[in-house]
Amino acid sequence: MLMVDLIVLMDHENVETIFEIKGDNIFIQNDVFIEAGLIENMAQTCSSIIAKDFFIDENNQDKDDVDVVGFISGIKTLKIHALPKSGSTISTKAVLVSKFITDDYSLCTMNCKTFHNEELLLEGEINLFIQDKNPKR
């Protein structure tokens, strides 16, 4: 399930996304967006900054037939301060801490914070692994 509606800002080290939490989201329980949903939103936001290299070439042209898989390889720190309600719109901001990139996969560490309006919901640091499922096309 896609957990990012809009990428507001993205450069080589920063990304900011917006996500509207709808009532039919799989991470809604008792009208509240649960912890796993916040973590998934964080992971998808963070992965966009590194995964973009799999989708766009050095001339900023879209690559064809991209098949990428990614997952959280570790949660270094995580603090959840509050859980938003269904219908809320959250903003997630992430900063690249480190990366290791090969032709076939990428590893990165990202710092992330998620907000509802000005309220801090989540802060943490995660490691991501992203791999091209069809390397050396």
Rank of each mutant, 00 (worst) to 15 (best):
I49C: 10
T17Y: 02
I34Q: 10
L121T: 05
N60D: 14
L2Q: 13
H81R: 07
V15Q: 04
K113L: 05
D57N: 15
Q131C: 11
Q29C: 06
I75G: 01
T102S: 15
N25G: 05
H116G: 00
D64H: 12
A43K: 09
Q61Y: 05
A94D: 00
K113W: 02
I126E: 01
L78Y: 05
C108W: 07
H116P: 00
I21A: 05
F129I: 01
T114Q: 10
N134P: 03
V95G: 04
E118I: 01
Q131M: 12
D103L: 10
I50L: 13
D65R: 12
V4M: 09
N25F: 10
N14W: 00
E119A: 12
F55P: 02
M10Q: 13
I18L: 14
N117S: 13
N60P: 03
Q44H: 10
I7E: 09
I28K: 10
Y105I: 08
Y105A: 12
F33E: 07
G70C: 08
S86H: 02
L107C: 03
I39S: 06
T102G: 12
D132L: 03
Q29F: 10
I75M: 08
C46Y: 05
Q29I: 04
G23W: 07
S86D: 06
K85Y: 09
N59E: 13
T77H: 10
L9D: 08
D11A: 08
F27W: 11
S106T: 06
T89Q: 11
K93H: 05
D53H: 15
I130Q: 07
N60H: 13
V15F: 02
G124P: 06
Q29S: 14
R137K: 14
N25L: 01
D53A: 10
C46M: 10
T114E: 02
V69T: 01
F55R: 08
C112W: 04
H81C: 08
L96C: 09
F33H: 06
F33N: 07
T92Y: 11
M10Y: 00
M42W: 07
D132R: 00
D103V: 05
A36Q: 15
S106Y: 09
F54E: 03
I39A: 00
I34V: 14
S47D: 10
I7Q: 08
L83W: 03
V68W: 00
V69K: 08
F55Y: 15
L38I: 01
F55N: 06
I75V: 14
D5K: 04
C108M: 14
Y105E: 08
L121M: 11
V8A: 11
V95M: 12
V15L: 03
I56T: 02
S106K: 15
K52Y: 07
K76F: 05
N134Q: 14
N127I: 04
E58K: 15
D11C: 12
E58C: 08
N111T: 04
T89S: 13
M42K: 00
V32F: 11
G87C: 08
V69Q: 03
I28P: 04
D31Q: 12
S98I: 06
R137M: 04
N25V: 04
T77C: 01
N117Q: 13
I28H: 07
S88W: 09
M3G: 02
M110Q: 13
F115Q: 06
Q44N: 12
